[in-house]
């Protein structure tokens, strides 16, 4: 489902003497349907960078980034938009929302985007928020006013509202208590069971071992500095 071939990434800082900073090279990885691959490596090794390359936030310098049958590295913006709507979900570490939109609508939005009727989308959103222990009195409020942990759970609910065939999870269990952490792990296992291909970053080792089928050490992709 997700396949990276010989991907490299560098940043060129034009306003700092055009310094070119290579950050990754020769990235090869493959994730099949129903499989969860954990990215490991020290902070700064490029785990999140790799995720952003797959999601299309970052432009790959070379190589192929295949999600389904689309090469994200070469795709037109509208193809990536369609991919993100129908195929590839991403739970980032931070929730970015339009101010004033109710939490329930934030969670229902990915379903509405694929044409799910309003009442069905809201029902699904409500059951996810309940499962993640967001008190019902908060559902009609904008998540911008929520605590960090609550925002994180809204973000997770949103990521799991629609059944994406492929999912990227950046620290989904960070800052969660034991009960919510168990719920999130159950959601991940459910997604695997229905055949989703998942790439995750987990600092929580127990969580990582519970859901991941294999691991990839991202530091292997660090460019070798010519000494």
């Amino acid at each position: 489902m997700i396949e990276l071939e010989n991907v490299s990434k560098s940043f060129t800082l034009h306003n700092q003497g055009s310094a070119v900073i290579p950050v990754m090279e020769r990235v090869n990885l493959q994730v099949s349907a129903g499989e969860c691959v954990g990215l490991v490596g020290a902070s700064g090794a490029g785990k999140s960078t790799l995720m952003r390359l797959i999601y299309g936030n970052y432009l790959a310098a070379s190589g192929r980034v295949m999600v389904g049958d689309l090469d994200v590295a070469q795709a037109e913006p509208r193809q990536i938009i369609a991919l993100r709507r129908e195929t590839l979900g991403y739970v980032s570490q931070f929730l970015r929302v339009v101010p004033r939109v109710a939490a329930l609508d934030v969670v229902a939005e990915p379903l509405l985007a694929v044409g799910t009727p309003q009442n069905k989308a809201r029902d699904k959103a409500a059951s996810l928020l309940a499962e993640l222990n967001i008190p019902e009195r908060l559902w009609s409020l904008s998540p911008t006013t929520f605590s960090g942990g609550e925002q994180q759970r809204v973000n997770i609910a949103r990521g799991f509202a629609y059944d994406y065939p492929a999912l990227l999870l950046d620290e989904p269990t960070a800052s969660l208590d034991a009960k919510n952490r168990a719920t999130v792990l159950r959601l991940i296992e459910g997604a695997k069971a229905r055949g989703a291909a998942i790439i995750g970053i987990f600092h929580d080792e127990a969580a990582r071992d519970q859901v991941c089928d294999s691991f990839i050490d991202v530091s292997a992709f660090s460019p070798k500095v010519a000494a």
Binding site: F11, T12, H14, N15, G56, N57, Y58, L59, P77
Partner: peptide, 14 residues
């Protein structure tokens, strides 16, 4: 030009 978050998160032009 490009996808909004790509242009903002990984701008290519000086």
């Amino acid at each position: 030009s490009g996808l909004t978050d790509q242009v903002l998160d990984d701008p290519q032009h000086a």
